[in-house]
């Protein structure tokens, strides 16, 4: 069993107008086998949380720690965190010109596993993962995310999730911009991943519709840089009906 513990996380970002505090003490523990959904209004800091845990250079952690099985991820470089078992499906996946998806995936897999994947099975695995995400095998020859549609980029993220099979996955609005078929395909991918039983998921979303496909064990409301409330599925339904108003007001007090 593995644990991802986020403790008292404070994060700020350098802006033109100076130092801006975004996360104000986030406490959250995800155990393997659990799916946590995080919901919150625009600008509340959800992506900042995801990026800071992954180690994005723009975000400064001013306090707190993030422990993966007791080891502080914050002491590690971005790639070390990934090799330790963390994966971030980004809200806006990055285009990397000239680097083919095939080369990228093989290099990533080699880095994560510490050895090159067996050539014979690997090509099959890649094609199968792409196919499950309804991405044509020809995507393997294209440059990473370059010219992909918004939905294709998200499906490519989940194909990577399945191929790299990390201990913990943070999915930042993987559902937004997906049509209903793609949403189902992506959800099935996430469910296949989490149904292994020993993997943890932190699912950031605005919409309850993905929660019709992916059953969260916990739902957290994220407002003004911290968790405002934690509950079960019913909390998502309450948010759907009433919006974030109540929590935003409470946070402003």
């Amino acid at each position: 069993m593995s644990t991802l513990e986020i403790k008292n996380l404070h994060v700020s970002v350098e802006t033109e107008d100076g130092h801006k505090q975004i996360l104000r003490g986030v406490d959250l523990t995800v155990n393997s086998g659990e799916v946590h959904a995080i919901m919150g209004p625009n600008g509340s800091g959800k992506s900042t949380l995801a990026y800071a845990v992954a180690g994005h250079p723009k975000y400064d952690v001013t306090d707190g720690e993030v422990l993966l099985d007791g080891v502080n991820l914050l002491d590690m470089t971005v790639d070390e965190r990934a090799r330790a078992g963390l994966f971030l499906a980004m809200q806006y996946p990055v285009e990397v010109p000239g680097v083919s998806v095939a080369n990228f995936l093989r290099t990533a897999k080699t880095a994560i596993d510490g050895e090159a994947p067996k050539l014979r099975t690997w090509v099959k695995d890649v094609n199968a993962a792409l196919e499950r995400m309804t991405l044509d095998p020809s995507f393997a020859q294209r440059s990473v995310n370059e010219g992909f549609s918004g939905g294709e980029k998200k499906r490519h993220e989940i194909a990577q999730l399945e191929l790299l099979n990390p201990k913990f996955a943070i999915l930042d609005e993987t559902d937004s911009g997906l049509d209903i078929d793609a949403l189902r395909v992506v959800s099935e991918g996430v469910n296949r991943y989490s149904s292994q039983g020993d993997r943890g998921v932190l699912l950031i979303t605005h919409y309850t519709r993905i929660l019709n496909y992916i059953q969260p064990d916990y739902v957290h409301v994220f407002v003004a840089g911290r968790l405002a409330e934690t509950g079960g599925r019913e909390l998502a339904e309450q948010l759907e009906a009433e919006g974030y108003d109540k929590f935003v007001k409470a946070a402003a007090v």
């Binding site: 723009k58 990533a108 994560i112 440059s143």
Partner: peptide, 28 residues
Amino acid sequence: DMHLFYLQSRGIDPTEAKRLVVHGFFND
């Protein structure tokens, strides 16, 4: 930075990430 961050976030060490980016740059 974003190219490197994306590649590194998939476990690829910074050296290898830079190599990939330069290769991609010229391979075109």
